[in-house]
Design a protein around this nucleic acid. Structure first.
Length: 1177
RNA sequence: GCUCGAGUGGUGGAAUUGGUAGACACGCAAGACUUAAAAUCUUGUGUCCAUUAGGACGUAUGGGUUCAAGUCCCAUCUCGAGUACCA
């Protein structure tokens, strides 16, 4: 009786659907288990054999868990918003909803192509999905809740104090009551405001401030703009500088965008990884992406250009007022001098005319102020304050602070003090003057001028190396560059900036080797030593990371070292006993030297000490920095979730109603002429909601919005009141096993962790991580078929010279053969190996014909020259020259025309895509020629072998293998077992159908165990010991293998078991029943069929996975491999319970032992009971 | 460059904690059945030497630890993935 897999599989698939066999119960006494596959995007191309690989593995596991008594949730749905459907809509004008539906449910597209439909394809493979829970992200019933989550995020801020997201209402209450002074939030808002400030602001102003706190916010951001796709892309959607989808160029553009403040979660996203059962590689990728670095931020003061020249400007400057307002200041000063207070007047009498050995000026403008008295040489300011100063102390403080920054010391006296005891006042001034050095004495004193007060803030992970700083480098885009550059360097700096800006992102990335930079002419002050440090610009410093500036430590950083060497900047060595003459020493294990208070400390301690000291002295602080950027959340696209947002002017508001905002109809899926996103084409009345403002939001959400929370919706897919009911999410909790590709490491897998943590913070779900255990299935690669074509050309060159040897006519022409030549790949190899010319493959008469034709073709020149064919050389006066050449090109051919590596030429040529095969001559593997036009197929002698290449499986390579064909030919059970049998799930492997016959044969063999020629043939006899051993050995192995997610080895185990039982001619019910159960996760259809034939009425998925019985596995004897010096020589069967000494005796007594001892006596005998014996000679 | 992973027959791969390397399957070869083909079945199949008996060599390469290494350690090479001037 034959194994009719097609019929069996159809019947059981129908049975499962009708009986809802795989429905998951929301409330069950059974323990829960949640098995999830990554969300598929339903493309028109349908599934290829690579897609179901993960689904089969998860299905095996889900079915196994059911047999183990778990209530299993194993759902499937579609991430159905996305770019391809929209691109297709733009091309064909069809609504993406229509094509998406066809891609899922099957049908015929506009061009008449049959679309199989994801659902139909999956059904054919016999998955145990609970289809009642299917979700589609593009369904308004689904995206209603995506919008709802967006609203929650909009209405939240991140409280660093509690380290979680909180409601924005609480923050507003705080602002109202006490301003933001005590708020510790993740925000880009830098100012401090009071409750009064807040309450005095308009709603618009308040909303602007709140925008800086919300976890999703609108801001002008530099984004990756892809002109070809007409939208922005997230960092993870770009690979190698081009868009991941389509490979289009990407440029930087400043746009007003929604962003998600994922950076608030950077630390938790990082630390959360530790508890996850994911591969190290994925964790590493995420760690890398988050990019945490700890260190310090340090501020360097910059010297003014005058001093920076090197020699310094030592003469005190007379004009110290802000040049921008100098005329105002001078006028005011004159006015004040004319009307001094009595105290001012009294003091001036003591100070004027160098009475104190220092020249004082009265009412002299400095910066934007007019202090009462100034000594420019000693940079001392003396102020005499009246009563008015009692109520403006804050302003005075600020003024003093500013003047201090400029290098001035400020002495303040009160009116009464001066009038009461002027001598004491003067003495004080004299004392201070004596302490201060003259500006002429050194160049470290900052001269006055508006150009001061500049600072360079840098971030460093190695504050311990701060004494090794010998220069600083700014990114060419750094805002200080223009200000600090000296006039001498201006031209060079401008040229460098221009060159750097012209370099594209890709150039900058690819050209990391070239060292370039330019000196600004300015110097910074080392905060510890006070040394002058030259400030350079260089494009190895990125404007977008950190502060866009670095303190360069050439001895400890290779890039700084390279830069210093290249520009001949001194390299200070601050490491004890380290040679830095050839390269920088970047390891953190060195001892610090030449570094003041850091000397003799190991790096780790030195880092702490340095940060402490930096903080103490107030020019920096310890800081942690992340590479992770806030995630851009707007797409200028149609086919995505609309935002529940409208605008009044420029201010966005959330729609208050809970109603879903549906995608409005539009006339075209293209941007408007003003460059607005497609949704701008919809009028206000086209939307299903009332827009209370000026307009709706025109952007849509990115692809990752819907997929960031879909695993929650499966728990409660039809709930109209909540995104998921509390009791359901409390029961199902997070995903126990997640199977999918590793390509989402920095996208979906990071974003869904972010949203999960957010929903957890707000108390909606009871867990913080969405996917506890994850397995990344490897890619199944396509095995492309290549056909090689040789173009044969005859090139002719000719030259004619006149009597004076001057060329008067030259030319070039070429003709090719009438037919192309296709070459069997083995012939190509032969030629290559023998290093012969490819043209040797071409028949002589063809080459002669081509030369002849080329000669005739050149008739005009020929007659003109009066020359014969093939004569002449460049030395002759006039000549023709012929040359044959061959160009080898390869093209892909559809793998369905292959039998092994042999091409079925006749069938392939019938396909319009490969019509060119009709025009060619095939050089077969035996060297014979074949042409579809000239010879009949019967005359064909050899075979035509194609080249093979491992590629990504894709339509354009004609190497796609669909599961449907294989299911039709071998059945779903065979496909399932074969895909698992191919190798470890995680590994990448090329697809090859050759081995599938072996797996198919195994299922046929299984079928024959239950049947003979007359039909079903199973008896109730008592099983033998061997039969029980074979079965229980297999039960044990299957359980162990599945539980450690080794999906390939069980298939071998089943084969071994079936082979053994076949050899034993076992047809006993007790054995075969259990075999059916353990096989059912892999081959569910045949298992169900045989289970039914065994007399069971319920589905095998309700059966219980049998427990193996150790008793059947233990044997009385063990076959010991006996080794001599580790080399296995013979086997010796001994009783299991025999002790070590007895085994040793037995082995040494054995006659074969004598042979291997070769007369020597054994030094030592190692006996491992039930394992091995090793004799050391 | 850095990080992670992997290198086992002609091929996919197995060997779970150091204990018989190459299970299972493909492919190939020979044979059986058949008019023939397909299907099916049987046998063989790491490499080399040897008629056999048997032996030598073998898990990318070179060292090491061990009674014993595909497995552990060190160095090197190759391939794959991620990332890329991240301070």
């Amino acid at each position: 009786m034959q194994y009719q897999f097609n019929e069996i599989e159809k019947n059981w698939q129908k049975y499962w659907e009708e009986n809802k066999t795989f429905r998951a119960e929301d409330n069950s006494v059974k323990p829960k288990y949640y098995v999830l596959d990554m969300f598929p995007y339903p493309s028109g191309a349908g599934l290829h054999v690579g897609h179901p690989l993960g689904y089969i593995a998860s299905d095996v596991f889900a079915r196994y868990k059911r047999l183990q008594g778990f209530n299993v949730l194993h759902p499937m749905g579609y991430d159905s918003f996305g770019l391809p459907a929209e691109q297709y809509a733009i091309q064909t004008g069809q609504h993406p909803a229509t094509t998406t539906k066809t891609n899922i449910e099957g049908g015929v597209d506009k061009e008449g192509n049959v679309i199989p439909g994801y659902r139909n394809q999956m059904d054919k493979i016999g998955f145990s999905f609970d289809w009642d829970r299917e979700v589609r992200t593009s369904d308004p019933k689904y995206y209603k809740w995506t919008q709802w989550i967006f609203k929650q995020i909009f209405n939240s801020w991140y409280n660093k104090a509690s380290d979680k997201a909180e409601k924005i209402d609480d923050l507003i209450a705080t602002f109202k009551a006490e301003g933001n002074r005590n708020v510790n939030a993740v925000t880009d808002y830098e100012d401090i405001f009071s409750a009064e400030d807040w309450n005095s602001w308009s709603e618009e102003e308040q909303r602007k401030v709140l925008m800086s706190y919300r976890l999703t916010f609108l801001s002008d951001t530099w984004v990756n703009w892809c002109p070809a796709l007409g939208t922005v892309l997230a960092n993870d959607e770009i690979k190698d500088g081009v868009s991941e989808r389509g490979g289009h160029p990407v440029e930087q553009k400043l746009m007003r965008q929604w962003s998600m403040r994922i950076t608030a979660y950077a630390e938790r996203l990082l630390s959360g990884l530790d508890g996850l059962d994911w591969t190290d590689s994925i964790k590493d990728i995420q760690r890398n992406w988050i990019g945490k670095s700890e260190g310090a931020s340090v501020t360097f003061k910059v010297l003014s250009p005058t001093l920076s020249k090197g020699e310094g400007d030592t003469s005190p400057k007379y004009l110290t007022g802000d040049p921008a307002i100098s005329h105002l200041l001078l006028e005011k000063a004159k006015e004040m001098r004319a009307n001094p207070t009595p105290a001012e007047s009294a003091l001036w009498q003591q100070l004027k005319g160098k009475k104190l050995d220092a020249k004082f000026r009265q009412q002299h403008p400095v910066d934007t102020f007019i202090p009462d008295f100034v000594c420019l040489d000693k940079m001392l300011i003396v102020e005499v304050d009246g009563d008015i100063h009692d109520i403006q102390q804050e302003q005075d403080q600020e003024r003093t602070h500013r003047l201090n920054e400029l290098g001035f010391e400020v002495l303040r006296f009160r009116n009464e003090e001066v009038l009461a005891d002027i001598d004491t006042v003067v003495n004080k001034i004299v004392a201070v003057l004596a302490q201060r050095s003259s500006i002429k004495d050194g160049d470290k004193v900052l001269p006055s001028g508006k150009d001061l007060g500049w600072e360079i803030e840098v971030f460093t992970t190695r504050p311990d190396t701060i004494f090794g700083v010998s220069f600083m480098v700014l990114a060419p885009e750094h805002e200080l560059v223009d200000k600090i550059t000296t006039t001498e360097q201006k031209e060079k700096i401008e040229a460098y900036k221009k060159a750097a800006s012209l370099k594209s992102e890709r150039d900058r990335m690819s050209d990391v080797k070239t060292i370039s930079g330019e000196f600004t002419g300015a110097y910074a002050l080392h905060p510890f030593t006070g040394d002058k440090v030259p400030v350079w610009i260089g494009d190895y410093v990125l404007a977008t990371y950190g502060t866009g500036a670095v303190m360069a430590v050439p001895c400890g950083d290779q890039r700084d070292w390279d830069f210093a060497k290249h520009f001949d900047i001194p390299i200070l060595n601050i490491f004890k006993d380290q040679d830095i003459s050839e390269a920088a020493y970047a390891e953190k294990d060195a001892i610090i030297a030449n570094s003041d208070f850091l000397n003799d400390l190991p790096a780790k301690k030195a880092i702490k000490a340095a940060i402490y000291e930096i903080e103490q002295r107030g020019f920096g602080k310890g800081k942690t920095q992340y590479k992770l950027r806030d995630a851009v959340f707007s797409r200028q696209r149609y086919w995505g979730e609309p935002f529940p947002v409208y605008y009044k002017g420029e201010i966005p508001y959330l729609l208050e109603s809970d109603e879903v905002v549906e995608l409005p109809p539009v006339d075209k899926y293209l941007p408007t002429e003003d460059g607005e996103p497609p949704l701008a084409r919809a009028n206000k009345e086209d939307w299903n909601v009332d827009c209370p403002g000026d307009r709706m939001e025109y952007n849509t959400m990115p692809g990752w919005a819907g997929s960031s929370w879909y695993f929650l919706r499966y728990m409660d897919p039809t709930n109209d009141n909540e995104f998921v009911a509390k009791d359901k999410v409390d029961y199902w909790k997070n995903v126990d096993l997640y199977i999918g590709g590793a390509e989402h490491a920095t996208g979906h897998l990071l974003y869904s962790r972010f949203w999960t943590k957010f929903l957890y913070d707000l108390g909606y779900i009871p867990f913080e991580e969405p996917f506890q255990k994850m397995i990344n299935q490897g890619m199944i690669q396509g095995n492309s078929a290549l056909i090689y074509k040789l173009f044969v050309k005859c090139n002719v060159t000719y030259s004619k010279f006149d009597e004076n040897n001057i060329g008067c006519d030259t030319g070039f022409g070429s003709l090719s053969t009438k037919q192309d030549f296709f070459i069997s790949v083995n012939k190509l190899k032969e030629i290559k190996e023998s290093k012969a010319n490819l043209l040797d493959l071409i028949p002589l008469d063809v080459k002669e014909e081509l030369k002849e034709r080329t000669w005739n073709n050149a008739s005009h020149q020929k007659n003109n020259f009066g020359l014969k064919k093939n004569i002449g050389s460049p030395l002759d006066l006039s000549y023709f020259n012929f040359e044959l050449s061959g160009d080898l090109v390869s093209g892909n051919i559809d793998i369905k025309y292959l039998n092994g590596d042999k091409l079925n030429i006749e069938d392939a040529a019938k396909n319009s895509l490969f019509h060119y095969l009709n025009l060619g001559i095939f050089i077969m593997d035996d060297g014979s020629l074949f042409s579809l036009r000239d010879s009949s197929p019967a005359n064909k002698t050899g075979n035509f072998i194609v080249g093979r290449e491992i590629d990504k499986m894709s339509k354009s390579k004609y190497n796609v293998q669909t599961p449907d064909e294989l299911v039709a030919k071998y059945g779903a059970d065979t496909l399932r077992c074969y895909e698992m049998f191919l190798g470890p799930l995680e590994q990448h492997k090329p697809w090859d159908t050759q081995g599938i016959t072996g797996v198919h044969g195994f299922l046929k063999k299984l079928w024959r165990l239950f049947h003979d020629d007359n039909g079903f043939n199973v008896f109730d006899e008592e099983p033998t010991k061997e039969e029980l051993k074979s079965l229980h050995k297999t039960i044990k192995k299957i359980k162990e293998d599945i539980e450690r997610f080794s999906f390939n080895t069980p298939v071998s185990a089943f084969m071994i078991c079936v082979n053994e039982l076949t050899a034993l001619k076992c047809n006993k019910r007790a054995i075969l029943s259990d075999l059916c159960i353990i096989l059912s996760p892999y081959a569910p259809h045949i298992a169900e069929e045989l289970w039914k034939k065994l007399g069971n009425t319920e589905s095998i998925s309700n059966a219980v996975f049998p427990k193996h019985n150790e008793e059947y596995l233990t044997e009385s004897n063990h076959k010991y491999p006996v080794s001599f010096n580790g080399k296995m020589r013979f086997m010796l069967e001994l009783p299991v319970e025999m002790g070590k000494e007895d085994i040793e005796k037995e082995v040494l007594a054995n006659e074969q032992t004598a042979k291997y001892l070769d007369g020597k006596s054994p030094k030592k005998v190692i006996v491992v009971p039930k394992k091995i014996v090793n004799v050391v000679v």
